[in-house]
Lab assay of single mutants.
Amino acid sequence: IDAAQIVDEALEQGITLFVVNNRLQYETSRDSIPTELLNKWKQHKQELIDFLNQLD
């Protein structure tokens, strides 16, 4: 699994991931984030931050 897949998966569930001051953040209108997704974010945090920083 790679960062792009995780970002896409989040988007499919209505969650936008982004980076502020090198910290992973998210925006969503959902009430809660699925635990499975949160765990993936934690496991791949640095990859996600690097990936999202490249997009900007």
Rank of each mutant, 00 (worst) to 15 (best):
F51R: 02
D56E: 13
F51A: 02
A4Q: 12
R30W: 06
T35C: 11
A4M: 09
N53E: 07
Q13Y: 14
L11F: 09
I1Y: 10
N53S: 12
Q43F: 08
V20F: 10
N22W: 04
I33A: 04
L11E: 07
E27Y: 14
Q5V: 07
Y26N: 02
E36C: 06
L38S: 05
A10P: 00
Q5G: 13
I33M: 04
D50C: 07
R23T: 15
Q5S: 12
L24T: 00
I6S: 02
I33P: 05
A10N: 01
Y26C: 10
I1A: 09
D2V: 14
K40V: 08
L24D: 00
L17R: 00
V19K: 01
T35A: 13
L52Q: 00
E12K: 15
Q43K: 13
Q46P: 04
I1N: 09
Q46T: 09
E36R: 07
D56F: 11
E47P: 05
T35N: 11
E27H: 14
V20K: 13
D56K: 11
Q54E: 10
I6A: 03
I15E: 01
A4Y: 06
N22G: 15
I1R: 07
S32A: 10
Q25S: 09
I6D: 02
L52R: 00
T28W: 04
A3S: 04
I49G: 01
K42M: 14
S32H: 11
W41G: 01
N21A: 07
D50V: 08
D31I: 09
T35E: 13
N39D: 14
W41E: 00
R23Q: 15
P34D: 05
G14K: 04
T35H: 10
A4P: 04
Q54A: 14
L24E: 00
T16S: 08
I1F: 12
D2Y: 10
K40Q: 08
N21I: 03
S32F: 13
Q43T: 08
Q43M: 12
L11S: 07
A4F: 05
D2A: 12
L24P: 01
E9M: 05
Q54K: 13
Q54N: 11
D31K: 11
I1V: 13
Y26I: 07
F18R: 14
L11A: 13
H44E: 01
I6N: 01
T35K: 12
Q5D: 08
N21L: 06
W41F: 15
Q43E: 13
N53T: 13
H44D: 01
F51G: 00
D8P: 01
I6P: 00
H44M: 06
Q46V: 07
V7P: 01
Q43S: 11
D2L: 14
G14V: 02
N39E: 14
L55V: 10
N39F: 12
N21C: 14
Q13P: 00
E9H: 05
I6F: 05
Q25R: 12
L17N: 00
L48R: 00
W41A: 03
I15W: 03
D50K: 10
T16C: 15
K40P: 01
A3V: 13
D31M: 08
Q5L: 10
E36K: 06
D56N: 14
D8H: 15
I49M: 06
L52T: 00
T35F: 11
N39Q: 12
E36S: 09
Y26E: 01
A4W: 08
W41Y: 05
L52C: 02
S29P: 06
Q54R: 12
Q5E: 08
L48A: 00
S29T: 11
D31T: 12
F18A: 08
N22D: 08
K42Y: 14
F18S: 13
K45G: 09
E9F: 04
I49H: 02
L11M: 12
E36T: 08
I49P: 00
N21E: 11
E12C: 13
D8M: 15
L24H: 00
A4C: 09
Q13D: 03
Q5I: 09
E36Y: 13
Q5W: 11
L52K: 00
